[in-house]
């Protein structure tokens, strides 16, 4: 849902998105240690595998975005993780776009990175039940933020898209609920089974 293909956005929008993505990637790759690459990459592969898994909902199916969960677990390494996944998706399946790689990365990773940063200390400290609630809120907010950013990317590209973009936000509501619930239960599982994954010195930090 959040992958805007080539040929939809206007040049200023995808150029600004591209520049922002280059800045974010440079910053987060610099912060990453060479030794952490396999760990971040294998985690990204599992997030990617999960997002490819389709969950049937009524007559259609949805795919998880996982921005909130990735932000909580990967921290700033969410930028290269999402960029690499989108690149692979564009190159392997022709799905998504090349000119829109930057803006798509920003739309998914920025909410994840910021909300992950904000929620992570509280999630790490909280009890299992409270952590699950916090993670639910975090990932639901991430989905909403991504939906808004996608709508804004469309609206800034052409006034003709503005009304459609507003209507498209509604399609994010079911995803928000489902992703929130699944992330909440996933975090409660991880707090019980592998609490160190959420400790201050985990994955991408």
């Amino acid at each position: 849902m959040a992958h805007i293909p080539d040929g939809v956005l206007s040049a200023p929008v995808f150029v600004v998105g591209g520049l922002a993505a280059v800045a974010a990637l440079t910053f987060s790759l610099r912060a990453l240690d060479d030794r952490q690459i396999p760990r971040v990459a294998i985690l990204s592969a599992s997030f990617f595998a999960i997002s490819l898994f389709s969950i049937p909902i009524g007559p259609t199916s949805i795919h998880l975005l996982l921005g909130g969960l990735m932000g909580l677990i990967l921290g700033p390494a969410i930028f290269p993780a999402i960029f690499a996944a989108l690149l692979l998706q564009a190159m392997m399946f022709g799905f998504g776009g090349l000119t829109t790689l930057g803006i798509n990365t920003i739309n998914i990773a920025v909410p994840g990175a910021l909300l992950g940063l904000a929620f992570r200390p509280a999630v790490a400290r909280a009890s299992v039940a409270r952590a699950a609630i916090l993670a639910t809120i975090c990932s639901a907010l991430c989905v909403v933020a991504t939906g808004l950013l996608v709508a804004l990317s469309l609206a800034f590209s052409s006034p003709d898209y503005a009304a459609s973009a507003k209507a498209m936000i509604a399609t994010y509501v079911p995803l928000m609920v489902i992703e929130g619930l699944i992330t909440g239960s996933c975090i409660s599982f991880l707090k019980k089974v592998k609490p160190e994954l959420l400790s201050p010195h985990a994955a991408g930090e």
Binding site: A45, S46, L69, G184, F189, L190, L197
Partner: peptide
């Protein structure tokens, strides 16, 4: 489904 996602993450770590 949450447990499934969590388990996959644990295994990948």
């Amino acid at each position: 489904l949450g447990n499934l996602v969590g388990m996959l993450l644990v295994r990948s770590i």
